[in-house]
């Protein structure tokens, strides 16, 4: 039987385009384009490679505001078969716990999957929590930081990235995997499929469609994480090392530099 694969994706601001306002030290967000979280693209590419090799039905799932449908359309253009958006005002302001709780309910409503893929983390929040939490909610085995996948009947042989080594793990499907960058090089979206996707309605699940959800566990209300303050760490200017020469030479060079920088002694 053909595998069923689900890929969770998040729409994030393109942080490579974000600049910092030097006066206020805050992020300049206006005009910053939205993209599919890069690690999620690695996850999708892995799913699509399994599809190319063994045949699979690939569904992409995202939780977010209505505009997150654009991220799903891009995934469709890369080769996903189905798109599902989870969107409701009640889900707004969710932290990782409330998000994974909501996503788990959405996934249950979509049926059973052999593999659920997530990116290792999103480049905006960088928590790396939603994937593992999702596995817990769904009672699934999980392997994080996946850098290689081999399929062997109902098992997957996973190359898991560690700080200074790789771990080889055999795991039986169903399983949840989180992808790292070195897993693969994501393919480009196809413009014909993108045009088709632009004309498609993205099926959306709202709170009403997921009646088992407890209202107190949703959105901001269901989020134990409270952000007290966000700040940009101050950027340290490059240091200067005076190497070579004798002590006298070094000291006089240092004095020159201090004078140049108008630091009086």
């Amino acid at each position: 039987m053909e595998m069923k694969i689900l890929v969770c994706v998040k729409q994030v601001p393109d942080t490579t385009e974000i600049r910092i306002d030097p006066k206020t030290n805050t992020l300049i967000r206006s005009g910053v384009p939205s993209i599919v979280n890069p690690f999620d693209k690695n996850a999708l590419e892995a799913a699509l490679q399994l599809k190319d090799q063994y045949g699979a039905e690939v569904t992409v799932l995202s939780m977010g505001p209505a505009q997150a449908a654009d991220a799903l359309r891009e995934c469709y253009a890369m080769g996903a078969d189905h798109m599902v958006l989870v969107s409701d005002r009640a889900f707004g302001g969710a932290d990782t716990l409330a998000t994974s709780y909501t996503l788990a309910a959405a996934i249950r409503s979509l049926g059973e999957f052999d593999i659920i893929f997530c990116g290792k983390q999103a480049i905006d929040g960088d928590t790396a929590q939603v994937g593992p939490e999702l596995a817990e909610h769904l009672g699934l085995a999980q392997v994080t930081y996946v850098a290689g996948i081999e399929k062997k009947e109902e098992f997957l042989i996973i190359k898991k990235e560690q700080e200074d080594c790789y771990e080889k793990i055999q795991v039986k499907m169903p399983v949840l995997l989180t992808a790292v960058k070195s897993l693969n090089e994501p393919r480009y979206p196809n413009i014909m499929k993108k045009m088709k996707a632009n004309r498609m309605e993205v099926p959306t699940l709202t709170a009403k469609d997921l009646p088992d959800l407890l209202p107190e566990r949703l959105g901001l209300k269901g989020s134990p994480t409270k952000v007290k303050r966000t700040f940009v760490p101050s950027v340290r200017k490059t240091g200067l090392m005076i190497l070579g020469g004798d002590a006298n030479g070094k000291v006089s060079e240092l004095l020159d530099k201090l004078a140049e920088a108008k630091i009086t002694l």
């Binding site: 253009a77 480009y188 979206p189 413009i191 993108k194 045009m195 632009n198």
Partner: peptide, 15 residues
């Protein structure tokens, strides 16, 4: 149009 932006965006990135 939005569609033209989508298409040229994909192409610019590729090229």
């Amino acid at each position: 149009t939005k569609e033209q932006k989508d298409i040229t965006g994909i192409i610019r990135n590729f090229l």
